[in-house]
Lab assay of single mutants.
Amino acid sequence: LKGVVVAGGVLAGAVAVASFFLRNKRR
């Protein structure tokens, strides 16, 4: 169960970083 929580956190972080980079590329 702990691994699932960690994986979810990593996935959420990756999505946040990806969206951040996409926003920067638009400018």
Score class of each variant (00 low, 15 high):
R23Q: 05
N24M: 06
R27P: 12
V17D: 00
G8H: 10
A12L: 04
G3P: 11
N24E: 04
R26H: 15
V6P: 01
V10C: 09
L11C: 06
K2I: 06
L1P: 08
A7V: 12
V6A: 11
G9Q: 06
G8Q: 07
V4S: 08
V15W: 10
V5D: 01
K2P: 08
V15F: 15
G8D: 04
G3M: 13
G9E: 05
L22S: 03
F21V: 11
L11V: 15
L1D: 02
G9A: 07
A7T: 14
L11S: 01
R26N: 11
L11P: 00
N24P: 03
G8E: 04
V5K: 07
A14R: 04
A14I: 10
V5P: 01
F21E: 00
V4Q: 09
G3V: 12
K25F: 15
V5F: 11
N24V: 14
G3Q: 12
L11Q: 00
V10T: 04
V4T: 15
F21T: 02
L11Y: 05
S19N: 12
F21M: 02
A16V: 04
V5S: 06
G13K: 11
A14E: 00
F20E: 01
K2Y: 05
R23G: 05
G9V: 10
V17S: 01
R26I: 12
N24Y: 10
F21I: 08
L11I: 05
A14C: 10
L11K: 01
A7P: 03
A12P: 01
G8T: 11
A16G: 05
G9K: 08
R27M: 11
G13Q: 08
N24H: 14
F21R: 05
K25V: 15
V5L: 04
G8C: 13
R27L: 11
G9F: 03
R27T: 14
L1Q: 00
V4N: 06
F20P: 00
K25A: 14
A7G: 12
F20R: 05
V17A: 10
V10M: 13
A16H: 06
S19T: 13
L11R: 01
A7Y: 15
A16N: 02
G8P: 03
V5N: 03
L1R: 13
S19F: 03
K25N: 13
R26K: 13
V5A: 10
L11N: 00
G9R: 06
R23H: 05
L22K: 04
F21D: 00
L22D: 01
L11D: 00
L22R: 04
V17K: 02
G13D: 02
L1M: 04
A12W: 11
R27Q: 12
A12R: 07
A12Q: 05
V4G: 04
V4H: 14
R23P: 01
F20H: 04
K2Q: 05
N24Q: 15
A12F: 08
L22A: 04
A12Y: 15
R26V: 12
R27S: 13
L22I: 10
S19Q: 09
K2R: 11
L1S: 07
V17M: 11
V15M: 15
G13M: 11
K2S: 08
L1C: 10
A16W: 10
K2A: 06
K25P: 13
R26S: 10
S19P: 00
V10I: 08
A7F: 15
R23F: 10
R23L: 12
V10E: 01
K25W: 15
A12S: 07
K2N: 09
G3R: 15
V15R: 05
G13I: 06
A7R: 12
R23I: 08
A18V: 14
G8I: 13
A18P: 00
A14H: 05
F21G: 01
S19A: 13
R23V: 05
A16Q: 05
V4K: 13
V6E: 04
R26M: 11
V17R: 04
A18C: 14
S19D: 06
G3L: 14
A14L: 13
A12K: 04
V15T: 04
K2D: 01
V6T: 05
L22G: 02
L22Q: 02
G3F: 10
G8F: 07
G13S: 05
A14M: 05
K2W: 11
A14D: 00
G9N: 06
R23C: 08
R26Q: 09
F21L: 11
V5H: 03
G13C: 08
V5T: 10
L22E: 01
R23W: 11
V4P: 02
G3K: 14
V6D: 02
A16K: 06
A14K: 03
R26E: 10
F20Y: 03
K2E: 01
V17E: 00
V6Y: 11
A16T: 08
V5Q: 05
L22Y: 09
A12M: 15
V15P: 00
L11H: 01
L11A: 03
K2H: 07
R27E: 09
G13T: 11
S19V: 15
R27K: 15
A12E: 03
V10F: 14
V17C: 12
K2C: 08
V4M: 09
V6H: 06
G3E: 07
V4F: 08
A18R: 04
L22F: 15
A18F: 07
A12N: 03
L1N: 05
G9C: 07
V15I: 08
N24C: 13
V17H: 01
V10R: 06
A16L: 03
R26Y: 13
L1Y: 03
S19C: 14
V17Y: 10
K25G: 11
V10G: 03
V10D: 01
V17G: 01
G3T: 07
G3I: 15
F20K: 06
L22C: 05
V5R: 09
V4R: 10
G9I: 06
L1H: 09
